[in-house]
Amino acid sequence: MKNILILLLGLLLSYSGFSQTQIVGDTVISNNKSKLKVKVYYFHVKERCHTCYAIEENFRKTLFTYFQTELDNGIIDMYIVNCELPENQVLVKKYDAYGSTFAITPYKDGIDMKTIELSNWAYQKVNKPEVFVAELKSKIIDLISK
């Protein structure tokens, strides 16, 4: 009986650990594997230019304006990552993100699906914030509705 109780307690703790939302700066990672549908990543270097900041600003604006509920509920995880920090090197290698990189990874049944690389797109659209936001919104809606 005691063993079963410990096992149940362990399961409960591990479950709450998985679903606990981490917020570091404005990075929002819920790790809610049952609900998660999309991971959105923006990688940047330490010394950033105006354009790099503008991409992040448009990226945040899109998510906080149109997807706050999905962020709160763990349907979307948002990562803003300094690609030059040692602790981020696993992600950097996985995403081939050695500088400013924008990418979306759909997530299904506990598995990362094929990543959509949007770095060139982001640099093309960054100076038209309304177009950037509208197109990114549309891409994310498309992915979370699948």
Binding site: Y98, G99, F102, S119
Partner: peptide, 14 residues
């Protein structure tokens, strides 16, 4: 061909 994104992604660290 617009290589801006690739430039920012790789030119400095890769």
């Amino acid at each position: 061909t617009d290589l801006t994104g690739d430039g920012f992604k790789f030119a400095r660290n890769k």
